[in-house]
């Protein structure tokens, strides 16, 4: 359609007809996508909160796990809470330092060499390995020799967390300006000193934030624990030996139970788990906002 430029005849309105319709439809579809995602999210969160909130109280969080047939208001999920805390903490203690060191190698020492390219690539690939494989792995090389334990579960979770921590730490280290490193070198620092005293402190906000997100992920995982901690119902304060339990494990067991009481406890545990993950996520965001100086 030719554009006319006779005076008084200039049409600056939106293109009419099918072009406009197609454009509007596209925009509507995009918004619809968002709605399609908000609905189930809202549904899940609402259900968990509605069904779980009534169960939560201090005795629930600390009480022992009753048999599945027990009614809803009896007992609690104490051992599972303890288990989750122990096992996730142990996994964090193992995975985070190793992940940070690995990222330090990639960014500070590896540079462009083929080895660091390979490690970085395979680390990203590893984040896509299903978590159940980590469980089968630790079962094969550890549980078969040393039995079920919280430690075995922590090893499996650690394998899961390692590549996540490596990637997020690496991104943070990359953002530290080189001028800081040069300033430190110029004062006669060795490379390890430069890294430990200037680079890591400068990136620490982002590193901690990334680690917290990895912890949130690990705390919610069930599959790696299935064959490593042998879900029990009693509390085990020794994370290094003997079977254990965790919140996700308990939820998994209770979800397939026909008993209403068990299901109710499952909802309570689910709310607890989501609350933990949510708190970690919020804290991570706060830390990024306040302390990650070089991010964004």
């Amino acid at each position: 359609m030719a554009v006319t430029t006779e005076p008084g005849n200039i049409d600056l309105r939106e293109p009419k007809g099918w072009r406009r319709t197609k454009n509007r439809t596209a925009t509507a579809l995009m918004v619809l996508s968002l709605v399609l995602v908000i609905i189930p999210l809202g549904f899940v969160l609402f259900t968990v909160i509605a069904k779980g909130a009534s169960a939560i109280n201090w005795s629930f969080l600390t009480g022992s796990i009753p048999p599945n047939v027990a009614p809803a208001d009896e007992g609690g999920i104490g051992p599972a809470v303890v288990g989750t805390i122990e096992i996730t903490a142990l996994a964090t203690v193992m995975a985070v330092p190793l992940g940070v060191l690995g990222a330090v190698y990639l960014n500070e020492y590896g540079g462009r060499n083929w080895l660091s390219a390979l490690i970085g690539f395979m680390s990203d690939v590893m984040t896509g390995v299903p978590s159940i494989i980590m469980g089968l792995f630790i079962f094969s090389i550890w549980v078969l020799h040393f039995g079920y334990s919280g430690l075995a579960g922590a090893l499996a979770l650690g394998c899961l967390m390692l590549p996540i921590v490596i990637r997020s730490t690496y991104e943070m280290l990359r953002l530290v300006p080189n001028s800081l490193r040069e300033g430190s070198y110029a004062l006669g620092a060795t490379k390890s000193r430069v890294t430990m005293t200037v680079v890591l402190p400068a990136a620490i906000g982002g590193i901690v934030s990334g680690a917290l997100l990895a912890v949130a992920r690990a705390a919610g995982e069930t599959a790696p624990l299935l064959f490593t901690i042998l879900t029990v119902t009693t509390v085990n304060r020794n994370v290094f030996s003997g079977p254990n339990t965790s919140l996700p494990s308990l939820i998994f067991v209770n979800a397939s139970s026909p008993y209403v009481g068990a299901q109710a406890r499952g909802w309570g545990a689910a709310l607890t788990l989501i609350a933990i993950a949510f708190i970690l996520m919020v804290v991570a965001r706060l830390i990024t906002a306040r302390f990650a100086r070089y991010a964004q």
Partner: peptide
């Protein structure tokens, strides 16, 4: 952030 088991 919703854990797999909660979806389940």
């Amino acid at each position: 952030v919703v854990p797999s088991v909660v979806w389940g």
